[in-house]
Design a protein around this nucleic acid. Structure first.
Lengths: 247, 247
DNA sequence: CGCCGCTTTGAAGGCCTTCAATTGATGTGG
DNA sequence: CCACATCAATTGAAGGCCTTCAAAGCGGCG
């Protein structure tokens, strides 16, 4: 049997190439990227891709499934810093100190592409398009972090949850999946640890949304019924939420 | 009179080179970096380095002074996403869409080095050390964002403020300045917009710290009197803060 | 089937926000 | 030089949102 770790991946045949690192590369360039990429053994729910403190020596791209990144303090308090969907780049938290500053765990059965960092940077130096796309994905991570910072810093529980659901919806849509019907791969606790609110509050707000006919949710299956109203909530839409915050 | 925009900077003679991009470069490499760097006309308090939506075409390194980065929503709600001290890289928020996703404003009289992005990436491709250090600073930004995310997601007002003061203290120390005596270049409102709490709460918590003898503050001059106690607060030190949060 | 963990729902309480007013610092014009 | 206006910061009081504690549903899985 072939060693899974060394199975070669063809970025050219990957449906996610337009979201992921290969974007903008021509055929020959893509082949050189293919030469670097290996597929790791699939992760099962609960398996860690890496842990806080592990040596950093590769970047990863989610391929199928989903993952959760989180930091933990010495006291065991956890903050989820992001969820990763197929096509998204994982591992940038290791760039600063050559050690990962957060842990990444699979939320369901998950496959990732692995790029040995040393070889990858070398290739970036040779392929300007790859370098540019790499930095674009870096920028995406930073922008996403700023977005969630804005959410945690200025929004109440209802708005945070609406922001989260809309973000997921958009990302599923970008991947060719339904933007209105999807399955949450994360638990209520994961969402709570991401949005900085208690699990019970998540539960209550979801119930509210359901009562208001904004969405239909049982267990982890979500159907968004009124996307417009959801958007309205995070804009603190004056017609619905007259409350506003002075600048 | 010489056009200020084109005055050349010597990274080699800059006290901040060990924190900034030149770190790890040899003499000849540093000279090539020098060739790219220009000094922009100094900014005064309130001047913007760039604004949300501006085209992204350069990275900046703070040189003297300090700046504040923030995003604003359509309703005018602001979230400060970071403060920049000398030696820190500014502008990464523009990487994703070639437009800046946040604004950066000077908090006092400030000078920055400007690196035209196209030329800079080209040089990165030629100098592995520069590429590595660039990515290290990128990682620093991401790690810092995760840190503040953790703060906003899990800590109460007292802990947030302690975290903020300790972070500033460390950064001043890293720059060879006093880690216990410094001047806040940002207003109480700026701090509030960063930590996601009301100005009044900032004011009250500062008064508390003063009453407890943890620090001495008048106006913007800070003296940390009991660094250990400050650290204790963010670790929700059991001997002082018996309250704890379940994992 | 029956345990166990996740989720939901209820009730009480606390931290922080909001509103309001005062104080202090800064700067401008008479 | 001082009065006055303006803005930042402080302090007080009331109220609300969310947390915490508690317990009951509800599915999943051995």
């Amino acid at each position: 049997m072939v060693e899974l770790k060394h199975i070669k991946i063809a970025c050219s045949s990957c449906r996610l190439s337009e979201l992921c690192l290969p974007r903008g590369l021509d055929q020959t360039e893509m082949r050189r990227l293919d030469d670097l990429v290996t597929r790791k053994r699939p992760l099962h729910r609960g398996d860690h891709l890496y842990r806080q403190g592990d040596r950093f020596n590769a970047l990863y791209a989610a391929r199928v499934g989903s993952l959760r990144g989180y930091t933990a303090t010495a006291d065991g308090v956890e903050q989820t810093v992001g969820f990763y969907l197929p096509g998204e780049l994982i591992g940038l938290d290791g760039l600063e100190h050559d050690r990962h500053s957060c842990s990444v765990v699979a939320l369901d059965t998950t496959a990732v592409c692995e790029l040995p960092f040393a070889n990858f940077t070398e290739l970036c130096a040779q392929l300007p398009s790859l370098q540019r796309q790499m930095l674009r994905l870096v920028g995406k991570e930073i922008t996403a972090d700023h977005e969630i910072l804005l959410t945690l810093g200025t929004r109440n529980a209802e708005e945070r949850l609406a922001t989260f659901l809309l973000s997921l919806s958009k990302r599923f849509g970008d991947r060719g999946l339904s933007a209105t019907d999807f399955r949450l791969s994360m638990s209520r606790r994961d969402i709570a640890d991401y949005l900085g609110i208690a699990v019970e509050t998540i539960s209550r707000q979801l119930s509210n949304f359901q009562k208001q006919g904004i969405l239909d949710i049982n267990h982890r299956e979500v159907r968004i019924l009124d996307m417009e109203r959801l958007r309205c909530i995070i804009q603190t839409c004056p017609s619905v939420q007259p409350m506003e915050r002075k600048a």
